[in-house]
């Protein structure tokens, strides 16, 4: 069967299945199980209304439970076991974690990830705030914002190709086709550099790609927050003779502190999951390994599910504080 046809069929089955399920299950509930007539009409309506939410929720809960909640626990279990060749698992306690901690590649990934965690959210938020503030006042601000927002639509892989061209290196005697090397030579550099193979600094060249993508996100959120600041506070500051920088740092930034924090944490999560950029640009060579790519290496190249799962748990552990913070905020907001 042609995949496109299969796709159309899946849409049809999926959509009609969903609608059918919701419609029929409601019908069964109202007409068969607890009909709203006869001597028990009132009680039946109440019972039906107690069950109905769960009918609405069931497919989504199944998807959430099976595809996100269950894997967390299963990964935890896998990280504590080893596969026995020929089938089955054996309990090995913390051996996988020990084995991982003994690998220099893991610590390289940890070190790089920490760098990513500091640099990318900080730079994306800073640039986002800068653009949001600057474009707020000018007439072509919306066009500028759309262009800076654009990389959000580009895949990490596409962005990797785009930036690989920027970082491209040709032998010294040829014309440079990568703009970074062309500028480097133009401003008096001697030999063209292979930017992605310079240990330590190459991680920063990879981070730039993610900053380039995420700045648009930060800008959109922060721009909305800046517009939400009450005019009076700014007018009062103007009357008191504050200069634009004071207004920005003393009046505006404090008022959007929580939004900045939200942007920061959201980008942090993206950073922890980042895989495609490193995979496509260096594949972790030249000391650019990060956790997500390390995990992919372990799981699908080395086929070591134990250590792979252990490194996945490390990512989970790093996400957990943000997870708790988000949940607490959401609960606070609902009350």
């Amino acid at each position: 069967m042609h995949p496109a046809f299969q796709g159309l069929l899946t849409i049809a089955i999926g959509v009609s299945g969903c609608v059918g399920y919701f419609y029929l299950s409601n019908q069964v509930l109202d007409k068969v199980l607890f009909p709203a007539r006869g001597p028990n009409a009132g009680r039946n309506i109440n019972r039906a209304n107690m069950i109905r939410p769960w009918l609405f929720l069931l497919p989504a809960l199944l998807a959430l439970g099976l595809y996100l909640a269950y894997p967390v626990f299963e990964t935890l279990r896998l990280s504590l076991t080893d596969r026995i060749p020929g089938g089955g698992y054996k309990w090995v306690g913390l051996d996988n974690y020990r084995q991982m901690a003994a690998e220099p590649k893991f610590w390289e990934a940890m070190r790089n990830n920490m760098l990513w965690l500091i640099v990318v959210p900080a730079m994306s938020t800073a640039f986002g705030l800068l653009v949001a503030q600057l474009t707020d006042r000018i007439r072509w601000g919306n066009v500028a914002k759309a262009l800076i927002f654009m990389p959000m639509a580009i895949s990490f892989v596409g962005a990797s190709v785009i930036w690989k061209l920027v970082y491209d290196t040709r032998p010294a005697e040829q014309d440079q086709i990568g703009i970074l090397n062309a500028l480097y030579i133009f401003f008096g550099g001697n030999d063209p550099q292979t930017w992605l193979t310079i240990p330590f600094w190459n991680s920063f060249f990879l981070m730039i790609v993610l900053v380039w993508i995420q700045t648009g996100f930060a800008m959109v959120i922060l721009s909305a927050a800046l517009r939400g600041i009450p005019e009076e506070t700014i007018e009062a500051a103007v009357l008191d003779g504050a200069n634009p920088f004071q207004i920005f740092f003393r009046i505006k930034v404090p008022q959007i502190k929580t939004t900045i924090l939200v942007v920061w944490t959201t980008i942090t999560i993206t950073v922890l999951k980042v895989f495609d950029i490193v995979f496509a640009m260096t594949n972790g060579q030249w000391e650019t390994q990060v956790l997500a790519n390390y995990m992919f290496d372990k799981l699908f190249r080395a086929n070591d599910w134990g250590v792979g799962s252990a490194s996945a748990m490390v990512i989970m552990l790093l996400v957990t504080p943000i997870l708790i913070w988000n949940v607490r905020n959401a609960r606070k907001e609902m009350q």
Binding site: Y70, P71, V72, T75, L78, A292
Partner: peptide, 10 residues
Amino acid sequence: VVPLQLALIP
């Protein structure tokens, strides 16, 4: 915020 990396193998 659960990283989908965790979900791959399971």
